[in-house]
Design a binder for these strands. Structure first.
Length: 241
DNA sequence: GCAACCGTTCGCCTTCCGCA
DNA sequence: TGCGGAAGGCGAACGGTTGC
């Protein structure tokens, strides 16, 4: 056995079987109780065939590796994000869905869903239904998406409705206040330019692209401001319950 | 509200045991 | 015989409970 029961593969520390068993027990117990997990309770409850002292030593190693942390000196350990990730990727026992459950899921998705937010909401409900816990789905950050298409609709009082569609089908609507009402043909011109030139670019880089490629050309500062507004978001991630 | 007590858990040190 | 892992003992730290 390697020293300390640790293996290193391409810079990623691998855990030996004993540490995996202890980490699994800690995560399992913490999920069940939401309280820091002590070595004594692990040794007693999970019948690992180890003394609390040995469990302590392994837990100390797991803490050093960043899988566990303890809130204060005398408290038990709780899993870190890294610990949870390892548990989900490598330790969690997966169960195959029954034919009945598979049929149920297919039924849930059988009705037509055109929008990605509908799919997100539906997935959250299915997750909640099968896990019997609250289902949470976190949509990908908009800035990481690819720009696909933009529509602009003139509204009253100098406002414009922008409808942005990403490569994954996510639709973002936004109402923009403009200082000066733009004629329809001007709006059309801007729209064509954006869809022709910026399609398939990452949204994150579009602002820089607008700044670099368009600002220096013949378009006015007003147009630049409009484009800047269209491609500026609050950065808040969408959470579906 | 505060002090005393108890239970739990920790780290550190030492001892024991198996193996090469 | 030396080394490494497992286990036990001890004191310290902390949270919870109880009594004043």
């Amino acid at each position: 056995m390697p020293k300390g029961g640790l293996y290193s593969l391409d810079g990623v520390t691998m855990l030996d079987e004993r540490k995996k068993r202890i980490l699994r027990a800690v995560v399992h117990n913490y999920i069940a109780t939401a309280l820091p997990v002590g070595s004594r309770s692990i040794a007693k409850k999970y019948k690992l065939g180890l003394s609390p002292a040995t469990v302590r030593n392994c837990m100390a190693d797991l803490e050093e590796l960043g899988y566990l942390v303890h809130p204060h000196t005398s408290a038990g350990r709780i899993p870190t994000d890294k610990g949870y990730r390892f548990y989900v990727d490598s330790l969690m026992e997966r169960e195959d869905l029954s034919l009945k459950d598979k049929t149920k899921i297919k039924k849930e998705y059988s009705h037509r869903m055109n929008r990605i937010d509908q799919i997100m909401e539906e997935t959250s409900q299915v997750l909640s239904l099968f896990s019997r816990y609250t289902g949470l789905i976190l949509a990908p950050k908009l800035e990481k998406s690819i720009f696909h298409h933009l529509e602009l609709v003139s509204l009253e009082n100098g406002r414009i409705l922008s409808i942005l569609i990403t490569g994954s089908g996510l639709v973002k609507n936004k109402i923009i206040e403009v200082e000066e009402i733009l004629p329809e043909e001007r709006l059309e011109e801007i729209l064509n330019l954006i869809n022709d030139r910026l399609s398939n670019l990452p949204l994150k880089s579009i602002k820089e692209f607008i700044s670099d490629q368009l600002k220096i050309k013949t378009y006015s500062v007003k147009i630049w401001k409009l484009m800047n507004q269209i491609f500026t978001w609050d950065g808040v991630e969408e959470l579906y319950l």
